[in-house]
Design a protein around this nucleic acid. Structure first.
Lengths: 326, 326
DNA sequence: TTGTAGGCGTTATCAT
DNA sequence: ATGATAACGCCTACAA
């Protein structure tokens, strides 16, 4: 591994000079600049970022903590984050927390020890008191953590309203909701959006709400239960797309025709909503944009730039597909 | 940020002693050990891994380079890699190369500058001459790069044979193949597996092979073309699941009943093969296992342990679902 | 314009 | 059993 020392020796200058041309700081005679540059090229010298980090106390590195990169939605987010930060010559540490706070904290500690310049985190449980000890900017992604922490999310409440209203407009008279885990803020917001709309039109019935995990099987079971107990349900708003898929599967097994007898709406806008038959009507989030915005914001924070807005909420969009169109 | 120095001062010992208890190396009197530990706890001291890296020339960090974390398959791989390495107290840099060699090289350079201890890479194009300058172990994942480089992959050739034979056994007499990009080794192997089997039974016809990208739309177009030109095709082996989904979509649009009139087999075993109707028969790879094995292998290499096997090829499994069952 | 030297926080060697 | 001290590779006062 060739170091600045080697380059300096080769050219016959001091390391300080090499450092200067590297960072073009301070005065360097054009001549020596050229020779040094030539030598760097020739020797294929690459500055050692670890040494640099040690000195500068920053590493051109950020952490991205998600519950599980396996779940659709997070890969897109990760890709956006990596695209933006990579452009700025940053590298991304990927961390899977499984939504467990101990893991989240373990990662935060590790990341701090590695001098990350900032962290993007998707979490439900982290509180400011956990975070106060970390001396780098942190932005919450997808799920707001605390009013003191900048965050990027989308309008889950309105999205849920749009979904529910859409079912109403499609003529549904008995609309059920399969809600996500209640410890997840977006699930609560979506639930509330649903409740408010059905209440408005006098269709609220708490028996039509069943909680499930954000997973196919779990939603399938929930839908089974719902449709068995209330066979006249004609619309289901599922808390996310994965669950909506579960609903369609369950409906199929029970002999319901979607959308003729039962209309289904999801939430998220994952790519695979289109592969199910019928294609899934859903409330789509601008996932990539959320990721890239959060990343850009983090970079600003890292560079000490003033931040325009601490809280960013993206609007969502109802994508009407076959699962609600008769 | 509290350092060893602070701890040492607090306890009234030298940094050397603190370092010793930290790494429990060398002799330390039990008493002082306890006091130091207590101080560490109390002051919430965490050793600075950057400084440590600088000295040790290794960072407890690895790089994972994939074409695009967005494509199904890679998140699972990433998760496996992260699980295994995280357990060993390593952190993972996530890099998206888009399969472009310039990006791959840029990442390699960056990673080397950061003293990563090793790299796992999914690439088609990288050659040993690109890699020779890097002084850390490298393992190719999913796609073998070169005989000189350890790799972990699966038996694509046999998998393709299984898929094709299965179609034969289902009674198909005219079996087409939509192949993946020919610069990707696994696509070539799958194609060859298909060719060999249809040739064996005298059904080989080069017109029944159409190349496409590993994407839904691309495969949809290819399937359209195939089915339009040869309406009597009764079986299609798609180069991967995503393409198989495209095929089913196309068939649906053209009014083919799958599996009654047309049977479809995919490759990969991605989770979403089950959400399409009919559920997709596929050749499933042990993705998680491939990732965790490669990661474990890399860790061994990093620790200088002897490696049992430089080349690991996992067996694949035919999962028969509805898309081939009448 | 350039060089010297001290320090970033650890670890490891050598004394004591 | 413990303490100085010199690295690790880079950056930045401060001198020259």
């Amino acid at each position: 591994m060739v170091t600045m020392r080697d380059v300096a020796k080769r050219v016959g200058v001091s390391v300080a000079t090499v450092s200067r041309v590297l960072n073009d700081s301070g005065y360097v005679k054009e001549d020596t600049r050229k020779t040094v540059l030539a030598a760097i090229e020739e020797m294929n010298f690459k500055p050692n970022s670890v040494a640099r980090s040690l000195f500068k106390k920053q590493s051109k590195t950020i952490g991205l903590i998600v519950p599980d990169i396996n779940n659709p939605f997070f890969p897109q987010l990760a890709r956006a984050v990596e695209d933006v930060t990579s452009e700025a010559d940053f590298t991304v540490f990927l961390c899977n927390s499984d939504g467990k706070i101990e893991k989240e904290i373990r990662y935060f500690d590790r990341l701090q020890q590695k001098y990350v310049d900032g962290v993007l985190v998707v979490s439900n449980t982290l509180k400011p008191e956990h975070l106060s000890q970390y001396h780098f900017p942190i932005i919450a992604l997808d799920r707001p953590l605390d009013s003191s922490l900048p965050y990027v999310t989308c309008n889950n409440y309105e999205g849920a309203q749009k979904a529910t209203r859409h079912l109403l407009e499609c003529g549904c008279g008995k609309i059920a909701h399969i809600s996500g885990p209640e410890n997840i803020a977006n699930a609560r917001d979506r639930l509330q959006g649903y409740k408010d709309v059905v209440s408005e039109v006098g269709l609220y019935d708490e028996n039509l709400i069943i909680p499930a995990e954000y997973q196919i099987e779990s939603a399938k079971r929930a839908a089974f239960k719902l449709l068995t107990n209330y066979p006249d349900i004609d619309g289901i708003f599922a808390g996310n797309d994965v669950m909506a898929i579960g609903v369609i599967k369950a409906a199929e097994l029970l002999g319901y025709k979607v959308p003729e007898q039962l209309k289904v709406v999801g939430f998220d806008g994952i790519e695979f909503g289109d592969i199910i038959t019928p294609e899934l009507t859903t409330v789509s989030q601008p996932v990539y944009q959320m990721g890239s915005t959060a990343a850009a914001m983090l970079l600003d924070l890292i560079e000490g730039k003033p931040i325009h807005q601490k809280e960013i909420t993206f609007q969502v969009e109802l994508l009407v597909k076959r699962s609600t169109q008769t």
